[in-house]
């Protein structure tokens, strides 16, 4: 479990480093999509952490959830853009709520474990 967290942190730093170095210029119009994708991915990651703390972690669910969340977030935003409705807000709210929810669960779990 701890190995997983270490690996996650290492992967995160590597990813950030790569992202800063990759010679791809993201067009300005895509920043919104990428931001929402990041939000969805973060949600998935926290969900995964929570699941692993609960010992309910399923790799398949984790991976499919990760990608489908990203796709859903981006797709919904795109749809909103086409319809001139800010669906991105729905994405932000939904994933934001889940993010805080997961974080709260992790916090409680850790508190219970280390500081009973």
């Amino acid at each position: 479990m701890w190995l997983g967290i270490i690996l996650a942190v290492v992967g995160l730093f590597m990813g950030v480093f790569l992202g800063l170095k990759i010679p791809i210029n993201l067009p300005e119009g895509y920043t919104l999509y990428l931001g929402l994708a990041v939000l969805a991915a973060l949600d998935s990651v926290f969900g995964g952490v929570r699941a692993s703390l609960e010992d309910k972690f399923d790799n398949k669910i984790f991976l499919t959830g990760f990608f489908s969340n990203i796709l859903l977030a981006v797709g919904l935003t795109y749809l909103g853009e086409q319809l001139d409705i800010a669906f991105s807000i729905a994405v932000v709210v939904a994933f934001g709520v889940r993010l805080f929810h997961n974080l709260a669960f992790i916090r409680r779990y850790l508190l219970k474990k280390w500081w009973p």
Binding site: L7, A8, V9, V10, G11, L12, F13, M14, G15, V16, F17, L18, G19, L20, K21, I22, I24, L26, T31, L34, G35, A37, V38, A41, L42, S44, V45, G48, F62, L63, F66
Partner: peptide
């Protein structure tokens, strides 16, 4: 997953 997330963050 964290690698992908990191890349996205970096790009962002």
């Amino acid at each position: 997953v964290s690698l992908i997330l990191g890349i996205m963050l970096g790009l962002q």
